[in-house]
Simulated scan of single mutants.
Amino acid sequence: MGNNKSLRDMQAEVDQYISQFKEGYFSPLAMLARLSEELGELSREVNHFYGEKPKKSSEKENTVEEELADMLFVVICFANSLNIDLQKAHDAVMHKFNTRDKDRWTRIGEEGEDENGNN
């Protein structure tokens, strides 16, 4: 698979990886626990890089990018284990944001305008 992978490509790649093991995917509760664990690791890295808590000299050097990738892997595993097409789910959520929430935020270039375009 190339560098321009779709969500479906990523789900297929993860499924191919997981399918080689007898254990397969974890249960939904175990997957949620793994996702929570990865979120904690991401939180720790964000706090080290952007917060007030410096890293201990004995701590492994991770990056926010690595931790986000770990979370993405677990999210894909979770979706695969429940037969959820993330591409379809993403399209649905973007439709929701572009319809229901289309006027929720101030668009760039519209500062100070009301809902009728008046200043």
Rank of each mutant, 00 (worst) to 15 (best):
M1R: 08
M1F: 08
G2S: 14
N3G: 14
N3E: 13
N4G: 06
N4K: 09
K5P: 12
K5L: 15
S6Q: 09
S6Y: 12
R8T: 10
M10Q: 12
A12G: 13
A12K: 13
I18G: 02
S19G: 15
S19T: 08
S19Q: 11
Q20D: 14
F21P: 11
K22N: 13
E23Y: 09
G24W: 05
G24T: 13
Y25D: 01
F26H: 00
L29K: 10
A30C: 07
M31D: 01
M31P: 00
L32P: 00
E38G: 03
L39K: 02
E41N: 10
N47Y: 08
H48P: 00
F49K: 10
F49M: 08
K53S: 10
K53V: 07
K53W: 10
K56N: 13
S57T: 15
E59D: 15
E59C: 03
N62F: 13
N62G: 06
N62S: 14
T63F: 15
T63Y: 14
V64W: 14
V64E: 09
V64T: 11
E67D: 10
E67H: 07
E67T: 07
A69F: 11
D70Q: 09
L72E: 04
L72K: 07
C77H: 02
C77D: 04
F78Q: 03
A79G: 02
A79K: 00
S81F: 01
L82Q: 15
K88C: 11
K88E: 15
A89Y: 12
A92K: 12
M94E: 11
H95M: 05
F97R: 11
F97E: 07
N98D: 11
R100S: 05
D101P: 02
D101L: 13
D103P: 01
D103Y: 07
R104V: 02
W105S: 07
I108P: 00
G109V: 06
E110F: 06
E113W: 05
D114M: 02
E115S: 03
E115N: 03
E115I: 05
G117A: 04
N119P: 03
